[in-house]
Design a protein around this nucleic acid. Sequence first.
DNA 1: AGCGAGATTATCT
DNA 2: GATAATCTCGCTC
Length: 283
Amino acid sequence: MPARSGAQLSRRVGQKKQRLSEAERSRSLPDVARTPSPEEPCSGPHTCLGPPATTGPQRSIYFLSPKDHPARLGSEFFDQPGVRLARALLGQVLVRRLADNTELRGRIVETEAYLGPEDEAAHSRGGRQTARNRGMFMKPGTLYVFIIYGMYFCLNVSSQGDGACVLLRALEPLGGLETMQRLRSTLGKGASGRALKDRELCNGPSKLCQALAIDKSFDQRDLATDGAVWMECGPPGPKPAVVAAARVGVSRAGEWAQKPLRFYVRGSPFVSVVDRTAEQMQA
DNA sequence: AGCGAGATTATCT
DNA sequence: GATAATCTCGCTC
């Protein structure tokens, strides 16, 4: 089939080239990068607080200057069973600090729980443990980043339970939107680099990784201590309504594909896939 | 708004 | 050699 449109052929050329340049090797920086505040689980009306934190001095986050970072979520927050963590993560803020100190922030609005060996949709199904999915078996708060379809990344947080974790599927961008725009736009290549709407920046598991420059080098990092990525308690406010729906892209997993293990903030325009039927049932 | 196709490769069998 | 927790684009309705 030689006679295709010449214009079409040349358009696609040079579309590859990863965005790894921005995803520099900023591993856990030893000293300064130790990031803000100590472990101080947020104590707002939200559900940030898992078990009561009895460790360390009780200092209120309100004593920190407003310009300062609110409480960083510590290990105890992540130490919850999968479903509970998946729900508790909604509303929390994922923060990514780039090598140039730019901070990118997004409020989590959609998650999925993967429950471990019995979960036919999980990478750890049947107790499979490989070099790739090791992060799923590490302590709660450990990141599990894997490559999907040979070119995208998905970001998970290990939860309580062997081989269990929570997939982050969508964020509401809060800070560093210009940088996210740049990281997401079809980088410099062909003319197709249109501007994305805010709602298009992080509304998908691989889109949010692209927007926050998160790649395989983040696999197995600890959210509680890493210098380039962490979580903060979301802003206080009324508890948002949560929809429980079937997970996305796991239709092959039999009965486990149907289980309501995906959770998202009802009405949020930043969610990747809305399930009207589930919403109806949970009206 | 929704469908179909193509992209592209680490990981597992 | 087949698969995959996805995304983008182009076309149709």
